[in-house]
Design a protein around this nucleic acid. Structure first.
Length: 732
RNA sequence: GCGCGUGUAGCUCAGUGGUAGAGCGUUUCGUUGACAUCGAAAAGGCCGGAGGUCCGAUUCCUCCCACGUGCACCA
């Protein structure tokens, strides 16, 4: 049988990739239910769902490559592999994106459209974006089980969200609280502590007295908030202010009546400013804490629109910056300012809208992380079934006990640091796109339920949930929870959670929390973190810089295989990597090298039909030195690659394979084989070795470069399995 | 301020308690049938600096420097 024409030309990914993905997909073998039962356990990865906000980028490509390598490797070894794909509605990111488009195209805001019409628009956008994203995931060669695809905002996931919410509410772990929260004025919503980004800006620090009679000077960068002060705090040991502690003062500050109490609190720095701090409980999270300790009243003077309220007509309605000017000039007129200094200040802004955060008091829903509750069933080491615990303890114990490992290990420190300092999680958002809070109100009544309660007059809470609330349920909501499904029983806890280190807090920690709470189980056994993919100069890829390398362009130009190998080759877990077209090109050469190796071997073994296993090959007493060398080199490679992949060191496995195939197999053995093939006594055994090595090298390489290996495998005579996808990993 | 990471060939990066590795780049040579998307060879590194442990340190420890990054503070 002569080789087909296509083999006579260099390897062209375009001739194969799409076709091969379709063949693999339609075989049904991405679905673990269709895999041959080898008696091995399941191996499960939940895909971190890409946001439905746009297109696939290099970070996604890296994530898909790493996970696909792990899954394909385990599948070849006979595990029942489940890789469950999905997409994330990314509430605020998606809504902001659609709002921007709407403003740009029609000059309208979401309020002009109204909730229902606006949501229709967002859903349309999300739907289209979903299709784009999923087709791009396929281009990368991801062997995930599309029959189980999930979306964080579909009906099933909504059921899971409502169920957890209700359960937590019953346990007292979700509560409504009136407290100072981070309000994103531009986005019109509250955001959590983790969604803040600090920006350094220039600011003026004013040192002044509220009024001529007031005995103490204070310092602030935000004079406009001082109309909301209800105390002045000093350090308990500060000798300057001892005689004032405990006294009350009332005065007009810029014509606004203000009453403050002098209190002593150890959180005050004696050396900063004047050592006396004007406490504004309504507009500073730190001040709110002080106020709570000293039972101080709270006076809101800034509204959700960033304007003054509850002051005097001359100030009310003014933007904070305008009010600041008014107050500063009043202070100057009255000679109350003693010092103005330029300082650098970190200003909190919102991650998604870049708007300035205005801390203000607001009634919101919170998840209580330190509150005790009883966990009826627990498989988490260190937490007994039926014992009393907290969400924070679940997060701590799951990792501390070693039930969950983190790679690279040093990220455990980052994780614990975050958990230890964690405060209650504000989960309600004043945006429209997302899981609506399952709470209904009628007069004084409150009912927690996904469905409208019986009777008339019920109004549902207007707010939606933080997008990470639904993401936190991902490992089990995808398996059908709260129903007791077979999938849930079979596939949970999952094996590996592979994701970028930047979302340890947002996502990883919260999955551990929610899985521990809802199931009494860890969500996954291993956390594998990857870094950021940067450009050749080490810069983050961004639209504004225009330095992004589009994984789809790469797949088009060099093939998905080349892109995949370039992403993992030489990239250690958890470290940022730089990628360049040069590197990708090098990997394309590798795919072609393999193609040519295959061509050489297949051309020279056309008259050789019986295959042999490694043991039988090795039994041949007339093996040459070169034969023995390559076989032992191959065995070493298998062992090393296996050990690397078990340890999730994909980068070293890739290097090992690359150098074995090119340096040992091609440069050394193929050259020797040319002579041996001409020698009648050595010919047959050389042919068998060549075929054996080719077939098994394809298997070893398949997780990394599935397309070219599958394309070659199609031409292997008498191959044991139709698709390389489910061939058997060499057992030594 | 607290913490984490990184620093290895011209560039991008792996790696290791025992005389340094890859890709790309450079130089020379070769190649009539697997492959020029090739092969053979070469040049190129006191493995950031200083101490310490050890028979021996690029690797382990301490300190320092540079860069990056997380968290907190910022009245």
């Amino acid at each position: 049988m002569a080789l087909p024409e296509i083999f006579k030309t260099p390897y062209n990914p375009k001739d194969h990739e799409k076709r091969i993905y379709e063949a693999e997909l339609s075989s049904g073998l991405f679905n673990p239910d269709n895999l041959e039962n080898t008696g091995k356990p399941p191996y499960v990865i939940m895909m971190p769902p890409p946001n439905v906000t746009g297109v696939l980028h290099m970070g996604h490509a890296l994530m898909l490559t790493i996970e696909d390598i792990l899954i394909r490797y385990k599948r070849l070894q006979g595990y029942r592999t489940l890789w469950l794909p999905g997409t994330d509605h990314a509430a605020i990111a998606t809504q902001v994106r659609v709002e921007k488009d709407l403003q740009k195209k029609e000059g309208k805001s979401r309020f002009d459209l109204g909730r229902d019409d606006f949501l229709k628009l967002v859903e349309k956008f999300a739907f289209d974006s979903h299709d784009t994203i999923t087709s791009q995931i396929k281009i990368m060669g991801a062997s995930c089980d599309w029959s189980r695809e999930a979306y964080t905002l579909d009906e099933k996931r909504n059921q899971a969200v409502n169920t957890v919410f209700k359960k937590m509410h019953n346990d007292g772990l979700i509560y409504q609280g009136y407290r100072v929260v981070n309000f994103d004025v531009k986005g019109g919503t509250v955001v959590s502590d983790d969604e803040l980004v600090y920006e350094e800006r220039d600011a003026t620090l004013y040192t002044f007295r509220y009024s001529p009679e007031f005995p103490i000077e204070i310092a602030t960068t935000r004079p406009e908030t001082k109309v909301g002060d209800t105390a002045v705090a000093v350090h308990p040991d500060d000798p300057r202010y001892q005689s004032y502690i405990g006294k009350d003062y009332s005065f007009d500050f810029c014509h606004v009546p203000v009453s403050v109490k002098i209190i002593a609190d150890p959180s005050v720095e004696k050396d900063f400013g004047t050592g006396a701090l004007g406490v504004t409980p309504a507009h500073s999270l730190i001040d709110a804490d002080i106020a709570e300790r000293h039972h101080l009243p709270l006076k809101q003077v800034i509204s959700e629109r960033g304007r003054m309220i509850n002051t005097i007509p001359a100030l009310d309605g003014k933007k904070t910056l305008e009010a600041r000017e008014t107050i500063v000039s009043w202070l100057k007129e009255n000679n109350l300012i003693s010092k103005e200094e330029k300082i650098k200040q970190n200003v909190a802004t919102a991650e998604r809208t870049s708007g300035i955060i205005e801390p203000l008091p607001k009634k919101q829903w919170f998840v209580a992380v330190n509150k005790s509750f009883s966990l009826p069933h627990s498989a988490i080491p260190g937490i007994e079934s039926g014992s009393t615990t907290t969400l924070k303890e679940i997060m701590k114990r799951s990792v501390e006990s070693g039930a969950i490992t983190i790679k690279p290990a040093h990220f455990a420190k980052t994780y614990f640091n975050w958990v230890d300092n964690l405060r209650d999680w504000c989960v309600s958002r004043q945006i429209w796109f997302g899981h609506r809070i399952p709470v209904w109100y009628r007069n004084e009544e409150i009912v927690v339920s996904g469905d409208k309660p019986e009777g008339e007059g019920w109004i549902q809470d207007e707010d939606t949930l933080d997008t990470w609330f639904s993401s936190a349920l991902w490992t089990f909501s995808t398996l059908g929870w709260p129903e007791k499904t077979k999938d849930l029983k079979t596939f949970h806890p999952t094996d590996v959670l592979e994701t970028g280190y930047e979302i340890i807090f947002f996502w990883v920690a919260r999955m551990i929390m929610m899985s521990g709470y809802a199931l009494g189980e860890i969500p996954f056994r291993h956390i594998l973190l990857h870094g950021t993919v940067r450009d050749a100069q080490g810069r983050k890829m961004s639209k504004s810089l225009g330095n992004g390398i589009d994984p789809l362009d790469i797949a088009e130009k060099y093939g998905a295989d080349a892109g995949r190998l370039a992403l993992v080759y030489g990239t250690a877990p958890g470290t940022d990597s730089k990628i360049s077209e040069e590197k990708i090109k090098g990997m394309k050469h590798f795919a072609n090298k393999l193609w040519n190796i295959a061509r050489f071997i297949l051309e020279n073994t056309e008259d050789c039909h019986s295959r042999l296993d490694l043991e039988s090959i090795k039994k041949n007493p007339s093996l040459t030195t070169a034969d023995k060398a390559i076989l032992s080199s191959f065995e070493n490679t298998v062992k090393k690659v296996e050990a690397d992949l078990e340890a999730q060191d994909l980068h070293t496995a890739a290097e090992e394979l690359y150098s074995f195939v090119w340096m040992k197999f091609a440069d050394e053995y193929l050259e020797v084989s040319k002579l041996q093939l001409k020698n009648e006594t050595q010919k047959e055994s050389t042919q068998k070795i060549l075929l054996y090595l080719l077939e098994n090298s394809l298997i070893l390489l398949h997780p990394f470069i599935p397309f070219v290996t599958e394309a070659i495998y199609e031409h292997i005579p008498d191959r044991p399995s139709t698709l390389l996808l489910v061939a058997r990993w060499p057992s030594l």
